[in-house]
Design a protein around this nucleic acid. Structure first.
Length: 166
DNA sequence: TCAGACTCCTCCTTTACCTCA
DNA sequence: GTTGAGGTAAAGGAGGAGTCT
């Protein structure tokens, strides 16, 4: 396969050795075929062993260093994308928690209002008042459920963490 | 067995260049 | 034709792991 077909501008001069001395730093553009082939390889393995690197370089008519650098940059791009996805995910978590907090604050206010309205004999100690008015479940420890998920808001909110696949 | 030198590899940051609106 | 932003190939340095003496 000829990977130098259809190149734009300075593509495919990477295999030349005119910048081997380090004096010039030519910017080349990989051809679509080369990029596509590298992408396919990246899907199979995100890092290369020396044999794979050499084989790829030979196949694409590039220097091994170029293949290496391409994989380096590709891993960086993947990581950046994953960071963006993680950021979105955390934003959603934050929004959900804010909403949950708002709801609980409101509920607390309602409970306080209810308490001031009730006659004295109805005002039992807090430890015996264990029914949650929102879910109508009876519990013995009101702080237990919150403590279980305090370090994992996602688990508490049932939000699946998204993952970028190579 | 341990320490130091060396090599190789990956990651991260920066630079330089290309493309496009 | 010029310019600025965004994308990306490439360079260079830091640090970790493996090998050798």
């Amino acid at each position: 396969m000829d990977f130098c077909v259809g190149n734009t501008t300075k593509s495919c001069d990477g295999a030349s050795d005119d910048d081997e001395n380090g004096s010039t730093r030519k910017k080349l553009r990989l051809s679509k075929q080369q990029s596509a082939f590298l992408e396919e390889s990246f899907k199979e393995h995100t890092t290369l062993n020396p044999k794979q690197k050499l084989a790829l370089a030979k196949q694409l008519n590039l220097r091994p260093r170029q293949v290496e650098v391409w994989f380096q940059n590709r891993r960086a791009r993947t990581k950046l994308k994953q960071t963006e996805v993680d950021c979105e995910y955390l934003k959603r978590c934050c929004e959900s928690l804010t909403e949950e907090n708002r709801r609980l604050q409101k509920e607390l206010q309602e409970l306080r209002a209810l308490k001031t309205c009730q006659p004295f004999y109805m005002q039992l100690p807090a430890t015996t008042l264990t029914m949650c008015p929102s879910c109508e479940r009876v519990a013995t420890n009101t702080t237990g459920a919150a403590a279980t998920n305090k370090n994992n808001p996602a688990a508490a909110l049932s939000i699946d963490k998204p993952r970028i696949l190579p």
